[in-house]
Amino acid sequence: MAHSHGHDHGHSHGHHHHSPDDSMGKLLFAIIINIALTVVQVIGGILSGSLSLLADALHNLSDAGALIVAVIARKVGNKSASNTMSYGYKRAEIIGVLINSTTLIVVGVYLIFESFNRYLNPEPIDGWIVIGVAGVALIIDLATAFLTFTSGAKDNMNIRAAFIHNVSDAMASVVVIIAGTFIILYQWYVIDLIATIGISIYVIYHGILLLKQSILIIMQAVPSHIDIEKMKQQLNVIEGVEELSHFHVWQLDDKKYFFEGHAKLNTTDSETVKNSIKAFLHDEYEIKHSTIETTQMLEADQNLDPLK
């Protein structure tokens, strides 16, 4: 059987990165101030007796961890492809997201457990220390969120994960400030525990979303924005295609999509059909990497007929 193997990979790499040194500098500075803030919050939480402040401290520590993983993953991800890693190291960033999201969930569950434990064994809380430390935390959280956003959060899932950490932590700091205010005005110590549980649930929710997204990419699932049945129908009406089957769509990281498939053709001009399929995948689905194997329908039928 005469197979025409179209293993042409349209590698049009349109990388529009921020200056790598500039982005890395911002991320490293964000790591330093997050670690410093964590230390301040832990001291403040111990002195004031506030669990929500300690929750915010742990969340900040997870922010620093997220940023450290983001920096390492970006360094590794930028390494060139090799003979042993032909796809390159881009998926290191997805592993980074997997680690970050798992950390978020674990920290969130631990804080909820501690909240119930504190409810059964209540302690007095100094609201002024809570507000003071949370106020400083809010300023630093917003600054860190800005640093991560301008370091490529729009274009990079791993940096975006770190950015979400920071934004959620800024929101958590606002919640802690409100809790501290209620403690000062009404001595409602239970509000501190409610705030802790609220922050934890929010953290767990985002952790699960990121975890799901990263696992699907690692498992080579079809990208969420692609309807595989619709794609099949669209490809089957391309001129020259009799039937397209055995095809797969997956993504390497949060930006690179791949396609491979087999097309039975009703024409002898296989190159034109392959180019049409590749152009459609590129324009409609942003798939720049495609491998297409073709078989001419007439040849396939002859092979099936024992008299030929």
Rank of each mutant, 00 (worst) to 15 (best):
N156M: 07
G96P: 03
I112E: 08
Y202K: 04
V222L: 07
F113E: 07
A263R: 03
L28A: 13
A73F: 07
N117D: 11
S19K: 01
G198K: 01
F116M: 06
E293T: 03
H246L: 11
N266Y: 13
D192T: 12
G207S: 11
L111D: 02
S173Y: 05
A179Y: 12
P20E: 10
I287Q: 02
Q187I: 02
S48G: 06
K288S: 14
T267E: 01
S50E: 10
V175F: 14
D141L: 04
Q213R: 14
A30L: 06
L265P: 11
D169V: 09
G14D: 15
V71K: 11
A279K: 13
F113C: 09
L61H: 01
K79C: 01
V249N: 12
K264L: 15
T196D: 03
T291A: 13
H59K: 10
I46R: 07
E271D: 14
Q220G: 05
S270C: 10
E243I: 03
I177A: 01
K256F: 00
E286K: 15
I72L: 12
S168V: 04
H246G: 13
F259C: 05
A162K: 03
A30R: 06
S245Y: 15
A161M: 12
V273I: 05
M24S: 13
L28S: 12
L307G: 05
T148D: 08
F182T: 10
L209C: 12
N166M: 14
H262Q: 10
V174W: 02
I228Y: 01
H3G: 09
H246R: 14
D283P: 09
E243C: 02
D192S: 12
L104I: 01
I204S: 10
H59F: 11
V241R: 08
E260N: 14
T268M: 11
Y110C: 04
G240N: 04
A64L: 03
A153M: 08
D254E: 12
Q234F: 00
F182M: 14
I72S: 03
N236D: 13
V71G: 08
I159K: 14
A134V: 08
I177H: 01
L304T: 03
I217V: 15
V71Y: 13
I215H: 02
A64Q: 05
I159N: 12
D22K: 14
F247H: 06
Q234M: 03
E229R: 11
S245N: 15
A195M: 10
G45H: 06
T38Y: 07
G261P: 03
I292F: 06
I140A: 08
N60V: 08
S50H: 05
I31A: 14
W128T: 15
I46T: 15
A134W: 07
S200R: 04
D283C: 11
Y285D: 12
I95P: 02
I191Q: 04
S80T: 03
P20A: 04
V222K: 10
S173W: 01
H282P: 00
I129N: 09
